[in-house]
Amino acid sequence: MSYFAFLAEHGTTLLLGTVTTIKVLVCSIILYVIISMIFGLMRLSKNPIIQGTATVYIEFFRGTSLLVQLFWAYYVLPFFGISLEAFTAGVAALGLNFGAYGAEIVRGGILAVPKGQWEAAHALNFSPAKRIKRIIIPQIFPIILPPAANLTVELLKATALVALVTVVDLTFEAKQINSITWLSAQCFGTALLIYYFMARFALVPFLRWLEVLAAKKVGRGKA
């Protein structure tokens, strides 16, 4: 069977799987960005309870394996009467796991804004809200976006794991086709290529564009 015949027969299935992968990716990016901002800020709180909660959360989700968390969300939570759909469980586990890594990036980004900026904003009698919104946040983005971009590419790769809790994504379809046809090189090779193209020619350029945009905002970009 030639490769083109293989694509003609199974291409649509793989593309449908790719659409699910993109859905999982977009949902978990939204979730992880929100979680990292919340816990990144909590980590900087002066209240020991809030800070402690954030530290425990971050250490817990970074300390256990993503696959374990995924299986826990899908197979163990029903024991406690919480039955999540595979898609929801997958997105929740991905979001919570990457949120823990993202929180550390956010924390680092906030700490990296020079102290003088806070003091200057204070000296100019800016209100706390204005200080954060106009002075601090625009400076945080250029710092946190490069590591966040790396993390997001890692997230795209990690979405493959949701196939193991029966989400019908690209990996799941590739495995399925493999078990029917045993054309392993074709189906896993195609899946690898699709992931590669998604990362290299869609996700990474988009994230680079965001980085340039953020750098321009604070006057650091090349015109």
Partner: peptide, 22 residues
């Protein structure tokens, strides 16, 4: 390096495990 780094470890595992025997 770029290719290996931007594709999931899981599928790489499947690839090595199922394709080499072919």
């Amino acid at each position: 390096v770029e290719f290996v780094r931007s594709t999931p470890l899981l599928i790489q595992l499947f690839f090595v495990y199922f394709v080499l025997p072919q």
